[in-house]
Amino acid sequence: MTKRRFLGQLGAALVAGFSLGGAATASAQAPFPNKPVRIILPYAAGGGGDQFTRLFAQALSDVWQQSVVVDNRPGAGATIGTNMVAKAPPDGYTLLMISSTIAVTPSAYSKLPYDTFTDLAPIGLFARSPFILAVNPGVPASTMEELLRYAKENPGKLNVGHAGNGTMAHLTYELLKARAGLQATAVAYKGSNPALVDALSGQVDMIIDTPAAIGQHVRTGKLRPLAATTAKRATAMPDLPTIAESGIADFDVSVWFGLMAPGGTPPALVQKIHADAQKAFTASGIAARLGTLGMEPLVSSPAEFQELLRKDAAKWAQVVKSANIKFD
C-alpha cells in the first residue's frame, strides 16, 4: 500500500469516526423521551394496581407526548416482571410500577435474579391502599370475630385466595394467621383477578384484596367484607371496621405503589422522570380520582421511597422468618 493511499484511508476513517461520535452525541442530547416508554407491571390485568397504572401511563403519555405502554408480566411473587426491569438498559425507556410486594421478596426468596436495592432505582411513590378481608356469602360470618370463631370450631375447612406466593396479600394473611390465629389453607393464584373469580364462585372462602378489586362485588352482595387491614378505616369503605378494631391490636398493613427504573439510571434522568411523573399525577387529576379506586395519594421523593423500601423490607423479613416462609 502506498503512503498516500494509507493516509487517505486513515483520513476517511477519522472523518467517519468523528461523524459517528457526533451522531452519538446528538442522540445522547435528544430530549427524553424521544420514543415510546414501557411500564412493566408484574401483576395480572384487572386489579387495582392495573387500573391505577393505566391511568398513570396515560397521564405520563400526555406530559411526554409519547406513547407509554403498560406491559403486564405477572408471576413468581412479582419477581418475573421486576427482573425484566432490573436487567433492562438504564435509559428510562423501561420502567417498573411495583407494589410493596418488592419489600417482601428479599427475605422470602433465598435467591433472586436481581438485587432489590442496587439493581433498581426508586423514582417515587404515588398511591397506597388498604387490603380488605372479604368472604364468599356462603361463609357463616359477618364480622372478624365470627370468622375467627368459625375457623377455630372448623379446623381445616376454610381456605383463602391471594394474588400469589410472596405478594403482599399473602404476607398479610400470614401476619393475620400469626397475630390472630386464623387457620385457613392459603391458595396462591397468578394475580388477584383469578383469585377473585374463585372467591365469587365459592371455590375459595376468603380473599384478601384491595377495595378497587372487590368494591363492585361488595356493593352487589357477591362478597361480604369483614375488615380493613389499615390502622384507620378505609376511605372507600368508611363503615367497615379495621382488623385492629376487631380485637387484633396494632394490626396495620397497606399496599403502596411506586415507580422504579433499572439500577444505574443516571440520577439526573431519575429526577426528570420523577418531576414529570409528579406533574402528570397532579395535572391529570389522578390524585382526585384515587378514591374511586379505593386508594389514597402518597407522593414521595426517590430518597423517601428508598427509605420506606428498606424499612418495610426489615419489617416483613421478621414475618417471613417467624412463619418460616420460603417461596423458591
Rank of each mutant, 00 (worst) to 15 (best):
V218H: 06
L175D: 14
R179W: 08
A184L: 05
K152P: 01
I214A: 09
G161Y: 03
A178K: 10
D209A: 15
L226M: 10
P211I: 15
T229R: 10
L147R: 02
G156W: 08
T167D: 05
L226C: 03
A227Y: 12
L175P: 13
A169I: 06
G156L: 09
M206Y: 07
G215Y: 01
K190Y: 08
R233P: 14
K190F: 07
G202A: 11
A163Q: 00
V218P: 08
K157D: 13
V160A: 09
T210Y: 08
E174K: 13
A163F: 00
L171E: 03
A178S: 14
A184M: 06
A234W: 00
K232C: 03
S201I: 09
D209I: 04
V218I: 13
R219C: 09
M168E: 07
V197G: 04
T167F: 08
V218Y: 06
G156Q: 08
G202V: 09
I214R: 15
T229F: 04
K222W: 08
A195P: 02
Y173I: 05
P211N: 15
T185W: 03
R233N: 12
E153W: 11
V197R: 13
G215C: 02
R233T: 11
A212C: 06
A199M: 04
T235R: 15
E146D: 15
A178Y: 13
Y189M: 00
G181P: 01
N154A: 11
V204G: 00
P225Q: 15
Y189K: 01
A195L: 02
V218G: 06
T172Q: 07
T220A: 06
L175N: 14
M206F: 08
L176E: 02
T210I: 05
I207M: 11
R219I: 05
G181N: 05
M168V: 09
K232I: 07
K152A: 15
E146P: 03
P194T: 01
L196H: 01
T185A: 07
A186V: 08
T210R: 07
H170V: 00
K222A: 13
K157F: 13
Y173C: 05
A231S: 12
Q216K: 15
E153H: 11
D205Y: 09
L196N: 00
A213G: 01
G215T: 03
P194D: 02
S192I: 05
L147H: 01
T172D: 04
L175W: 13
P211L: 15
L175V: 12
G221H: 04
G164L: 00
N193A: 12
L200M: 00
M206C: 07
R149A: 15
P194E: 00
T229G: 05
T230P: 04
N165T: 13
P155V: 14
A169N: 08
K177I: 05
N165Y: 14
A151I: 11
A227G: 09
K177F: 02
L196F: 02
E153V: 12
A184F: 05
H217V: 08
V187G: 03
A228P: 01
Q203T: 12
M206L: 14
Q203R: 06
G191A: 09
R219N: 12
L226I: 10
V204I: 03
T235Y: 12
Y150I: 10
T235N: 14
G181I: 07
P211Y: 14
K157N: 12
A234Q: 04
G191I: 04
N154C: 09
N193S: 13
A163K: 05
N159L: 11
G202I: 11
R224C: 12
T172S: 10
H162Q: 13
Q183W: 12
M168Q: 07
A212E: 03
A234L: 00
T220N: 15
